[in-house]
Nucleic acid binder design. Structure first.
Length: 822
RNA sequence: GCCCGGAUGGCGGAAUCGGCAGACGCGGAGGCCUCAAAAGUCUUUACUCGAAAGGGUGUGUGGGUUCAACUCCCACUCCGGGCACCA
């Protein structure tokens, strides 16, 4: 496209100026009302791709808009610079991940600047910065001291591809690694955990206070998986002094218990197994515990026709509800890590139990009356209880209460809440992460590295192997140290922390990276927190957002972070993804579209405008052939604005006429529409409103009648201000030309609409006959019901359409509509 | 299987409350400008019957509520996403 101005030069000029002038730097003692807007800090993967562009376009629009609204806007940027890709790339290239990472940061940073996105770069954060490491380690030790970080042996998810353990959150539902796609296997290892489960309830209930997309909240609720139930004893039939403890959410179905199941990992498996059954039980236990989760699940998938696997232990327990003996099975569909690791099985009301009972020929008893026509197997809905002794006739809710009381009396029953959420496993057997700052001493065990010795930094001369051991473990100089307590020989922890630890507090560092010797001054943090608007990808709906919420709550409770808000992100916005050929655009898929080429044609402004206009920000964008034309269209629109500003051929006149008044009204109605769009993430309609105004003004200015000059000035200035957050370069340039020596358009106050001009003096009223539009009348918006009726009936077209017919009923809704029923 | 979200012209999408369906843009068609093209500009563009005036139909499908439904209710189809032995 031939441009009437040098887009690249104009954009370069303004980008340099915003940086040089520190236009978007904001001080902590700024007296204006505060607004904290941030996008999720990116993993530095090199030059920005279209997904970044889209993300930062929205973020930048908010920063510039809120600034024009008179607020002190905190707009920070940083890099999530620890992580596996850099380490793997460094191994491949025989280089160091730091070198690799810092190159990528440079690329990404410059392409973010090239987009025209503005930040207070003095606050830039990098996870691998020694200062940042120091404070991550400080927080680890604070959690350790408070008992919120602990070391335990646990069956963990081990990814053979990544050569590290993973958090539960990083394992896909099919049992593969979220990152590498390898099949994750189970290993028993000693690992570090953060006790996020202490905060399960708060993490659940505080979701209600957040202005977040509902689906993100739902995902977190499901992930936390709170469930209320009863834990109670099933006594051994052969030795009533011993019992199998089980957890259930449906104590009301107790009369339907026809067997019990114990997980293969359960410590009492041996006690239950009779000699006759020992061989088959051992075989099942061995198989179940050595299988990957994927294999374990695919061979026994619940209720979808695949056979559940289990064996009879030879023992029986007594159902306290009816004193009947029921057999105990070992089966791999019961998890050792949830509840008590054992269940009462109710095939009549539970799908999984039903499937198992069907295969093993176990009795099925219904205890809830299903509705008429119910054709399924297990029925888990509400209904009247049957076959249930003292519970008969009650509904589920009533029966639960009574059954729980009964169990409390008879079977050591207690009400119990269980969560799906597990503690957060933070150890990683990798190099490129924050070292865990503890040493192991033969005498004193786990000893924290003293604060004055932080940060513990990894040495550079480490062989980045992929042996499955932490690379740091083989570096003797690092590994061998002395015990801080007795000075005796000790070994350093060789694992590093999950990088989600870094992203759990970086937003606090942004608030105050200036105070020496502290991660941040809580007084300064309190000025900014919580984040007013957080923007990022839906892929972080659970992991990052849950961890960060936990971390802030913990830091507040430890007295480290200020307690101004126990939730870090008041409003969350998750923008849509960009898809190419139906799949998500990503570096790993190699289907990236680079923004570079567009900077040469339509500029960053054109690209930004396209992203704002193409559809609702939350929606996904399919990158198709037509997309190029849409981007061209955005560029064309900017051209039109540019030309409109250079109004050589306009016929100006002095008198203010009706046509000029109409333009003033259009200007002020546009202000309302655009402001509205800005406030509710409806940028596509805000852009449309501005386009309409440009069309109106163009037509008017070139009309024979000509334009009233002050009105033209008002139109052009307003247009520039409304567009400024969207296309910041060209608007800054045009504003400067129109108003030399006056502060930039970005320093102007957001325009306010004049209510008198927004008000319509005439509006269109529709007249319908039998719900079909037959006439449109111009009426006053304040028209009375009677006048509306009279006007409608008097309309010639209506008269004609009615002819002989007489209205049976007339619905009048002034000033919008009159509907005549005949 | 369960839970969310969605379905509107050739395309992206618009329509605070139940009250003018299709704003705005892309694409298409035609005109102007031009030696010609590009750029620009003007007109037109849901479908359909009609020469026109004018009429009919139309927001995934089928029902319902209402004077009036893209919007509310019920059932279903398809698409996207999440969860999936958590007892």
């Amino acid at each position: 496209m031939a441009r009437s101005f040098d887009v690249a030069a104009v954009e370069a000029k303004w980008q340099a100026r915003w940086l040089d002038d520190g236009t978007y730097e904001v001080d902590n003692d700024d007296p204006r009302e505060r607004y904290y807007s941030m996008s999720m800090y990116p993993y530095p993967s090199g030059a920005a791709h279209m997904g970044h562009v889209r993300n930062y376009t929205f973020g930048d629009l908010i920063v510039r808009y809120q600034t024009m609204r008179g607020k002190a806007v905190l707009s920070p940027f940083g890099f999530d610079s620890f992580g596996l890709p850099a380490e793997n790339a460094a191994i491949k290239a025989g280089s160091h991940p730091r070198i690799f990472t810092e190159e990528r940061i440079k690329e990404l940073k410059s392409s973010v600047i090239r987009l025209g996105a503005v930040f207070d770069w003095r606050r830039e954060v990098r996870s691998h910065d020694p200062q940042f490491i120091k404070y991550s380690q400080t927080f680890f030790l604070a959690l350790l001291e408070a008992g919120l970080a602990y070391r335990a042996e646990a069956p963990v998810n081990w990814c053979p591809g990544c050569m590290t353990v993973l958090a539960n959150e990083q394992v896909n539902p099919d049992g593969t690694c979220d990152r590498s796609g390898d099949l994750v296997i189970r290993k028993n290892l000693e690992q570090w955990f953060f006790k996020i489960t202490d905060y399960a309830d708060e993490l659940l209930y505080d979701l209600d206070t957040l202005d977040w997309p509902e689906r993100v909240k739902i995902m977190q609720r499901n992930w936390i998986g709170r469930s209320e139930g009863v834990e109670f004893d099933l006594p051994f039939a052969s030795d009533p002094s011993k019992a199998l403890r089980v957890f259930t959410t449906r104590p009301d179905t107790g009369f339907g218990v026809t067997y019990a199941v114990i997980a293969p990992e359960h410590p009492l498996v041996g006690d239950f197994t009779t000699n006759a059954e020992r061989a088959s039980v051992n075989e099942l236990v061995e198989r179940a515990t050595s299988l990957s989760d994927l294999e374990r699940m695919t061979t026994s998938d619940a209720g979808v026709g695949l056979e559940k696997r289990g064996v009879f232990t030879g023992s029986f327990v007594i159902n306290p509800f009816n004193d009947e003996q029921v057999p105990v099975y070992v089966a791999d569909y019961v998890l050792g890590t949830y509840g008590t690791g054992a269940i009462m099985a109710v095939p009549g009301e539970d799908d999984r139990d039903f499937a198992f009972a069907t295969v093993y020929g176990l009795p099925i008893v219904r205890t809830t009356q299903p509705p008429d026509g119910f054709a399924g197997g297990a029925y888990s809905g509400d209904g009247r209880h049957i076959n249930s002794g003292f519970l008969d006739g009650l509904n589920v809710k009533e029966a639960k209460v009574k059954a729980a009381e009964f169990l409390a009396d008879r079977a050591h029953g207690v009400n119990k809440v269980n969560y799906r959420l597990r503690d957060w496993l933070v150890s990683r057997q990798r190099f490129w992460g924050c070292p865990i700052p503890v040493v192991y001493c033969d005498t004193h065990g786990i000893v924290a590295v003293p604060l004055d010795q932080l940060p513990v930094l990894a040495p550079d001369d480490v062989t980045m192997n992929t042996s499955g051991q932490s690379p740091l473990a083989t570096h003797e100089g690092f590994r061998n140290t002395t015990c801080p307590i007795d000075g005796g020989p000790a070994r350093r922890e060789a694992d590093t922390m999950d990088t989600f630890t870094d992203s759990s507090w970086y937003f606090l560092r942004y608030c105050d990276p200036f105070t020496e010797g502290q991660a941040f001054d809580p007084v300064e943090v309190a000025k900014w927190m919580p984040v007013d608007q957080y923007i990022g990808g839906i892929e972080h709906a659970i992991l990052h957002l849950l961890y960060a919420r936990f971390f802030l709550k913990a830091l507040i409770d430890l007295g480290i972070a200020p307690g101004v808000a126990r939730e870090p992100f008041t409003r969350l916005f998750t923008q849509g993804i960009i898809r190419l050929d139906g799949t998500r655009m990503s570096k790993s898929k190699g289907n990236l579209v680079s923004p570079e080429a567009y900077y040469e044609t339509v500029g960053a402004d054109g690209l930004r405008l396209f992203h704002l206009f193409v559809g609702p920000p939350a929606d996904n964008v399919d990158w198709v052939d037509q997309t190029e034309e849409l981007i061209e269209g955005a560029g064309r629109f900017i051209e039109r604005v540019y030309r409109l500003m250079n109004y050589d051929d306009v016929n100006f006149h002095e008198d203010f006429g009706d046509a000029d008044l109409a333009v003033r009204q259009a200007i002020h109605r546009t202000i309302v529409r655009v402001t509205h769009g800005m406030e509710r993430w409806s940028y596509n309609t805000a852009v449309a409103a501005i386009m309409e105004l440009v069309n109106t003004v163009s037509k008017w200015a070139r009309s024979e009648h000509g334009a009233h000059r002050p009105t033209m000035d008002e139109a052009l200035d307003t247009l520039l201000m409304l567009l400024a957050p969207m296309t910041p370069h060209v608007t800054a340039e045009l504003w400067e030309r129109r108003h030399p020596g006056v502060p930039s358009v970005h320093h102007q106050s957001w325009p306010e609409a004049d209510a008198a001009l927004v008000k319509q003096e005439m509006t269109t009223m529709v007249v319908e006959i039998n719900g079909k539009v037959r006439a449109r009348l111009q009426v006053s918006p304040e028209i009375s019901e009677d006048d509306a009726r009279t006007a409608a009936m008097a309309s010639p077209t209506i008269q004609q359409a009615l002819s002989e017919r007489s209205p049976q009923r007339v619905v009048v809704r002034p000033p919008r509509l009159v509907n005549i029923i005949v």
